[in-house]
Design a protein around this nucleic acid. Structure first.
Lengths: 140, 140
DNA sequence: TTAAGTGCAAAATCTTTGCAAATGT
DNA sequence: ACATTTGCAAAGATTTTGCACTTAA
């Protein structure tokens, strides 16, 4: 079910504009989540920085993209594969943040169920590991 | 072993200055981690904003404070209770970020051991839940 | 045609850097 | 006395807002 960028836009009542298509292409053709600074570099010549901010937050609200804040506080974006409805993401797998290349990987490992103290209500949970990813391990 | 602010400074070869003592007092008298914006508000009249930045990063480098980036990308600080040495924190317990009051709690629950794919090297791991904390649950 | 979306300029924040004055030891 | 640390000013970076122009439907 690898939906094409244009179909994603259609399915979400969004117009087919160049910035939106470019952003989706960038993010979909990856093994890892893409950081916002990275997107700015790649799309710098084609998409205005402000438009990028607005595009990303639209996509997040619609549940098209999933925003992951890494350990350095940088925003990273990945396609939502799980059953996300708008404003309510279920993306509860392990994220891995490489300290060398800065990539954030969405690994296919479920977060172990965790009990929290009574009186706390849990809405979501995120597990973020950091270290060296496979690519950087090979290179060194 | 509730060490006094001044003893913490002594133990880390830091001079006893007003900003440092005030920051430590703010952070130690809490059940939850304190966000940087919160610290700015509380200490606004007494400590320069730039000094606060520098103080917090000094404390983090020394292993006195532990920095936690919450889901919104905001920095939160808590005392390191575990055996932290400079530049190498072991703070692997569950953090809980209240979406209502924005507090970050350090809960005394260990992160379940997690296996990552071969070729990835894990250096640290962080588990962050969000939802409603006990205080906010009572109020509503 | 027209509502939605973009791009630019400009404001509002947040974070870092440089340096002279103040302070702890 | 002297190395540290602070506070201010100012540069740099990030994020948001307003508005006129453009474009997809």
């Amino acid at each position: 079910m690898n939906t094409a960028p244009k179909d994603i836009l259609t399915a979400n009542d969004l117009k087919q504009t160049k910035p939106r298509l470019l952003v989706l292409e960038q993010i979909m053709g990856r093994d890892a989540a893409v950081s916002q600074p990275d997107l700015e570099k790649k799309l710098g010549g084609e998409v205005d920085r402000v438009t990028l901010y607005r595009t990303l937050s639209t996509f997040e609200e619609k549940g098209i993209l999933h925003k992951i804040i890494d350990g350095a506080g940088t925003a990273n974006f990945a396609i939502c594969h799980s059953n996300c409805t708008s404003h309510h993401h279920h993306d509860e797998h392990l994220h891995f943040n490489c300290t060398q290349c800065k990539k954030v990987y969405c690994l296919d490992i479920k977060i172990p169920s965790t009990t929290i103290p009574k009186n706390f209500t849990m809405e979501s949970i995120q597990l973020m590991a950091s270290g060296i990813c496979e690519n950087c391990n090979i290179k060194s």
